[in-house]
Design a binder for these strands. Sequence first.
RNA 1: GUGGGUGUAGCUCAAUCGGAUAGAGCACGAGACUGUGGCUCUCGGGGUUGCGGGUUCAAUCCCCGUCACCCACCCCA
Length: 422
Amino acid sequence: MFKTPRGLKDILPEEISYWRRLEEKAREIFSLYGYSEIQTPVMEELGLFSRSLGESSEVVQKQMFIIKRKKENLVLRPEGTAAVIRSYLEHGFSKKEGFVKFYYIGPMFRAERPQKGRLRQFHHIGAEAIGSNSPYLDCEIISLSGGFLKEIELKDYEIKINSVGCKDDKDRFTSILKDKLKGKRKILCQDCQRRFNQNTLRILDCKSQNCKETVKGLNLKNAHLCSDCSLHFKKVTELLDKLKIGYSVTPSLVRGLDYYTRTVFEITHKSLGSQDALCAGGRYDNLIRDLGGQDIPAVGLAFGVERLLLAQRVRLKTQHPKIKAFIITLGEKAKEEGFTLLDELRKNKVSSETDYQNRSLKGQMRKASNLGVRFVIIIGEEELKEDRVTLKDMISGRQEKIERKKIIEELERCLGQIPVEN
RNA sequence: GUGGGUGUAGCUCAAUCGGAUAGAGCACGAGACUGUGGCUCUCGGGGUUGCGGGUUCAAUCCCCGUCACCCACCCCA
């Protein structure tokens, strides 16, 4: 027997209604905030991600699914932002319009070891606002994420924000940090010794008590921001206060992807265990230039759909329309007649079903009952002879014979009388 | 990539100290006067005990390997 490859999952019919609901809500909220949907392919050139996420990032180094072809290397996209920006540049949006807002929904792929809230194919709902460095936009996008969470009735989350500063700030801060830690490298944990070279800023976010103390002892304060970035961040927090959005400034919050500048934020949920981020995002003012465009600032975010579903206390479903009528037949002649009627019903937009397993009358009734249909149409020898069909209401249990040619009209009349629930 | 835990029917779980034909509930199917569902009752189908090796008279149970899943680290949304 074949199985889904490691870290990949089937989403079965029962489950999919929760997904649909979330997607509907996302579309609703994102358009409310002025974003339009964009879809990019699941594959991109390898270079797009090594350029944008950073050659040294773990995602690029170890986690990409690479598809080798004769002349090109493609990868299954590990995230959405770089792809959206590629599309933005490729289609000349930077020239047509000064400012655009996009959102996207789709699968992402990373070859990580699976655990709770972490799959190899996972799904993002993300948004990018491209073409403005206004702090109002940073605030808006955080507000948007709160709006969405409210809409899907997800509570008890926590918003953490920080500013990593502009490129110069990041570089300067990295070298200050390296400098101060140089003598203390040996006391750091193994992971941090590796981080020292690869991703120095992440040492600030280490969970080891020992490293935390060491970092504390460095007396770093908030000196890493230049005055512009500092002002920008101050404005963002003031605006958040104004909108009464609760957040905590978390200096240790440092994103692992290279492209982030200035504002970064993360929304976490305790119920998720160690993969606790529901949503993360931030500003990326250099990315567009790094990918060959002009100097255009942008800010974005992405939600993890699987994690949203895990964190929702009450999961909201979309109601799929129920089958309304079930045709029961007895004998081959009746089956043919029933099959024709079934076709007619569907052409009249009455969702209907019949038996394909040659069940007994009883079995067919049971099947109809399990499907939750309201009406059953029975065709047997008697009915054939009289050119009529039996129409049974499964709730009242009443049934009557109706002329064959009037059945659709009659059924529609009956369906019209019951209140519409879905 | 590292560490720990788990793997028995479609699902949730039993199986004594290593012992006989691996059980139950749910789900599924058939039946309870000849053409009528739900409730009840009866019966039934379904298992290479993840896979491969080893120890033993005997392995679901012990050991080794492997795969998968779960949890944590790492990483990240």
